[in-house]
């Protein structure tokens, strides 16, 4: 599998609210290696039957951050609400795709220089309008409840680093597709379920219902986490290109974390640990409390500029996540 190609296709696609592009692309990839079934939301599940009746769920979320239109005025300016955590400070003059009757490009308004104030506070999304550039025709194309997403392109940086919107969490979706391909035509020791959940960004909602439906014996969530940069406290982040971040948290089952670490060491796979004092802010939080409780692990891909439209990841980190999880699957008892 060309992981870069998968990443490019997955991040170019839109997956928010009722827009299923990303789900359809991920589902198409998974269907090459697994039995695929779709949920009523954006979710998609791939299954590979294993040697024995025990199910390991590998989970990532398919949805992306964005906005939902709450008002369209007569001059073509939109008021929106956020879907997921958005850095309001970086919105002015940012370009977005507005998914109305057709998809049109818009721009977040920025304050003109002669009206700019020194010490601006960015705290209300309702103050930040989107210019649809359509004037009075906007209402013909855009309706309340339409979704808006970042419009940035996919770029390659130095080394093996890539820059795009929606690597959170499409990078992890690519991990699941890559893992499924590695078990194509082989019978893994246990049943594997590759679960792409919806609505993580608005409160870990999709994973709640998908893990209820799948009801696995154990689960590992794959997400992204903060990578290093100047002015970022090294204790608050992982390191780019230093491998998979294995989560250690009260939420994450310690035996799973320990086993992931042991396998990484044994197989010489690059890894780093990420210790969290409470919940993880990922789907692992909700999967682990499904039904009577599910032992859940967390593995993250280091990522820079989280929730911006130019998130950065390294392909080598994604490969190390795949490698560790492949070993884990082979070693499930």
């Amino acid at each position: 599998m060309d992981i870069k190609e998968i990443l490019k296709n997955l991040t170019a696609a839109v997956g928010i609210g009722n827009i299923r592009e990303a789900t359809d692309i991920a589902g198409e990839y998974l269907s090459r290696f697994c039995d695929v079934s779709y949920g009523s939301d954006l979710g998609v599940i791939g299954r590979i039957t294993g040697e024995r009746d025990y199910t390991l769920m590998l989970e990532a979320h398919i949805d992306q951050i964005g906005f939902i239109v709450t008002d369209v005025d007569d001059k073509g300016f939109l008021t929106v609400s956020t879907c997921g955590g958005i850095d309001l400070r970086a919105l002015p003059s940012r370009q977005v795709d507005i998914h109305g009757k057709k998809t049109v490009r818009g721009v977040f308004c920025s304050t003109p220089p002669h009206l700019s104030e020194e010490d601006v506070t960015f705290d209300k999304i309702s103050d930040m309008k989107i210019d649809s550039c359509l004037g009075e025709k906007a209402k013909d194309i855009i309706s309340l409840g339409d979704y808006v997403t970042f419009s940035s392109a996919f770029n390659e940086l130095s080394g093996d680093k890539l820059c795009s919107k929606s690597f959170d969490d499409r990078a992890a979706c690519a991990v699941l597709i890559e893992l499924a391909s590695r078990f194509e035509g082989k019978k893994p020791p246990v049943n594997l379920v590759f679960c792409l959940s919806d609505m993580e960004e608005i409160g870990l909602r999709g994973a709640k219902t998908s893990s209820f439906r799948i009801s696995p014996d154990e689960a590992i969530a794959i997400d992204v986490s903060f990578a290093d940069g100047p002015d970022i406290n090294p204790e608050d982040c992982g390191k780019m290109c230093k491998g998979a971040m294995i989560g250690i948290s009260p939420v994450a089952d310690r035996a799973i974390s320990d086993k992931l670490i042991r396998l990484a060491k044994e197989k010489n796979i690059p890894y780093q640990t990420e210790v969290m004092g409470k919940s993880t802010g990922t789907d692992a939080d909700i999967i682990s409390v499904t039904k009577s409780g599910i032992r859940t692990g967390l593995v993250s891909i280091p990522l820079r500029n989280m929730h911006s439209d130019c998130e950065i990841i390294s392909v080598s980190d994604i490969i190390s996540v795949c490698d560790i999880l492949e070993e884990y699957i082979k070693a499930v008892e």
Partner: peptide, 19 residues
């Protein structure tokens, strides 16, 4: 290609995250 980067908002605190 490059990206102008800074501290992500999740790692800022209090007023810093609004300014």
């Amino acid at each position: 290609n490059g990206v102008i980067s800074g501290k992500p908002i999740h790692l800022t605190h209090g007023e810093e995250s609004k300014k």
